[in-house]
Design a protein around this nucleic acid. Structure first.
Length: 198
DNA sequence: CCCTGATTCGC
DNA sequence: GCGAATCAGG
């Protein structure tokens, strides 16, 4: 593969969008991240952004969709109940402990045997948190189902029933299924969810 | 171990 | 110019 104008353009675009060298390399195909980094330097744009100002088009993910049950497209091979959300009984047993508690997750099945993250009802998340997540999602890697790995955030964004759908894909928080931002909304301290009694 | 970008240097 | 190898760091 050679650096055709088109490939260089894509490289520039992605680099200015903040994509990592490996991401770009994957997108381009036929090159390694080293090649990308090397090219980036030769092009003298090691300093991300400056003129480009290529704002990610990010189509509004049509607001937090209600839990969408993914059709078991293919029989998932005994999906490991990874961080299966324990039935969180929001009883009146007010516990002040700051123990993290996953919000109820809908059982969803992914061919890869990965449990899908819960679709949070916007009303359960603080405004700021939601804001932050929205912000972070702008830089999501927009991975497809097949591109998910054990260390890419599996938080779904958008409407699964449409083309406007992808997975976050940002680096997961070591061990967890989501990136930092999404772990934040997926696992909330009891205290912050106490007031929203059922 | 996973990842990131930066640099070097033989080709 | 290219990019693998290597380095430095999270």
């Amino acid at each position: 593969m050679s650096w055709t104008d088109e490939r260089v353009e894509l490289l520039k675009k992605m680099w200015n969008e903040g994509q990592s060298a490996s991401q770009i390399a994957k997108e381009l195909g036929g090159v390694t991240r080293n090649a990308v980094i090397g090219k980036v330097h030769r092009l003298g744009l090691s300093n991300r952004n400056q003129a480009g100002e290529v704002e990610a088009p990010v189509l509004e993910p049509s607001a937090p969709v209600e839990p969408v049950v993914a059709e078991p497209a293919e029989p998932a091979p005994r999906a490991e109940p990874v961080e299966a959300a324990p039935a969180v009984e929001t009883d009146d047993a007010d516990d002040e402990d700051e123990q993290d508690a996953p919000i109820p997750a809908r059982r969803q099945i992914v061919p890869a045997g990965q449990p899908l993250p819960p679709q949070p009802s916007a009303n359960e998340i603080s405004a700021e948190a939601l804001e932050t997540v929205r912000e972070v999602e702008k830089s999501s890697k927009r991975l497809t189902l097949m591109e998910l790995t054990e260390r890419t955030c599996k938080w779904p964004i958008g409407d699964p029933a449409s083309e406007n759908f992808w997975f976050c894909g940002l680096p997961v928080q070591s061990g967890k299924p989501y990136c930092e931002a999404h772990v934040g909304v997926a696992f909330q301290p009891m205290s912050s969810r106490r007031d929203r009694r059922r």
